[in-house]
Structures are given as C-alpha cells and as structure tokens.
Design a protein around this nucleic acid. Structure first.
Lengths: 115, 115
DNA sequence: TGCTCATATAATAATATTCGAATATATCAT
DNA sequence: ATGATATATTCGAATATTATTATATGAGCA
C-alpha cells in the first residue's frame, strides 16, 4: 500500500506546490536562499506590507517550507529543506532557457519585418 | 542585465508553477511520465470529463510543459521537458518523507493516548 | 457534401486566493 | 503594569481559478 498515485496524494502535492504560485513568495524564498532573515529585513528588501508579508510567511510555514527562530522580538526565517531550492532552480532553468529562445525569436522576427 | 530577481521574472516563474497546483494536472503529468497518451486515453485513465481535461491540457500547452502530435483525429500528448518531471520528483520526495514522519508521529500519539 | 468521432473553446456559476485595514499577541525595557 | 517594537491573525472586498454545459473546429469516411 502506498499513497503515490492516489487522489489524496495529488491533492497534497498540489497544496505543496501552491507555495510556488505567488511572485511574492518566490521572491521571499529567493531571499532566504543564502541564509536566514528576520521578517523586518524581508519587509525592507521586498517592500511588501507587514500584514501581507506575514500572511505569505504563514503559508510557507504551513507547508513546512521554512523554519523560524525567535531572538527577542524578532523572528528569523530560513529554508527548511534545500530540495525546495533545488526544485525551484530546475524550473528557473527551464524558464530562463525559454526566455532566451523567445528573445532570439523576437529578434529574428524583428529582422524579418525590416525586410 | 539579467531577468533574474526582477518582478517580471517572479511573475513568469509563478505562472509556470501554476501548472503544478491542480491535482488533476499532476495526475496527467504523472500519466505522461512514461510516454505519450492520447486525450481519449487520458480521459479513460483519469475519469476527467472531456472538456475539463482539454482545459487542463491547454494550460500545460500554454506553459510549454507538453508537446502534441496529431495522428488522424487523435492528439497525442507527451512531456516536453524532462526537468519538469525531475522538479516534481523532488517535491514528491519531500512530500512522501513528510507523510512518513507524520504517520509515525500519529502512531506514537495513538500509543500515548492508550496509556 | 454530409456524418461521425476526437478535441478545443466559450460562457457561466461556484469556489478559492490575494490584499489591505484593523486588531491581537509576544517580547523587552522602563 | 505601561509603553514600544516586531510579528501574527481576522475579516471583507476584489480578483482569479475551477468545473460544467453548450457549442465549435477539424480530420476521416460514406
């Protein structure tokens, strides 16, 4: 008996991936990639309003994508599982490659249209 | 000049990841993992109604996650970029591991409560 | 051409997600 | 305890996503 391939599995998997479908959350993850940051620091770096930032961090927490450490009144966030970064990097590579190809196509099209 | 780290980049990245946030799309991707299938076959395997299936396939197409090949009236779908599968497998591993840990915790909790 | 099968698209209703404003909690210093 | 700072939560409105029904396209065949 395994959970793989069941409705419940796909449900949980999609809930996990839901974390990736907000530009703001991706930016937060990117900032945490090289080490922990406090909520305040993240706020300054991203410009996201406090409440909204806290909401996004709550989603990351719920999916156990980040860990927190309290120091006084500050809470420091960090990546909980490096595979998260690895998975995102794979998708990033696909994206960057596609943008390059499309950029090239756009350039070629521009040349064509001059003729 | 690079697109990485820009608002546009995170926007595009989140749109790509949007593909992963539907249990049905994850199931479709899983079925295509080992080779192409026609829309009809996918319909039979998943039980998803034709129109809805077609909509999900359209989203996968838009994000260039799948390729299509026409043979007569049938359209065969296949994975366009293997990194897609690789990225999903990383997330899957995280998920399976977590379920195992939580299952163990639930079992321990049950034992505790008997006492 | 007209018919049928396979697939795609459009429109709509139900549902889920996002963000901002207000409020609550937690820690520290006085 | 009171006040100040940092973070979290709740609620509601705007927006986006999903599934269903109906309709359209496109290929093959009589």
């Amino acid at each position: 008996m395994t959970i793989k391939g069941t409705d419940l599995y796909y449900q949980l998997h999609s809930e996990l991936c839901h974390v990736f479908t907000s530009p703001k959350r991706l930016e937060i993850i990117d900032l945490l990639r090289d080490g922990e940051h406090s909520v305040q620091q993240l706020g300054e770096m991203t410009g996201i309003p406090q409440a909204n930032l806290s909401q996004h961090l709550a989603i990351l927490r719920q999916q156990k994508m980040v860990e927190t450490r309290r120091d006084g009144t500050c809470v420091y966030y960090s990546i909980a599982d490096r595979r998260l970064v690895k998975a995102l990097d794979l998708v990033k590579k696909m994206l960057v490659e596609r943008i390059k190809v499309e950029g090239r196509m756009a350039a070629e099209l521009a040349v064509e249209m001059k003729k």
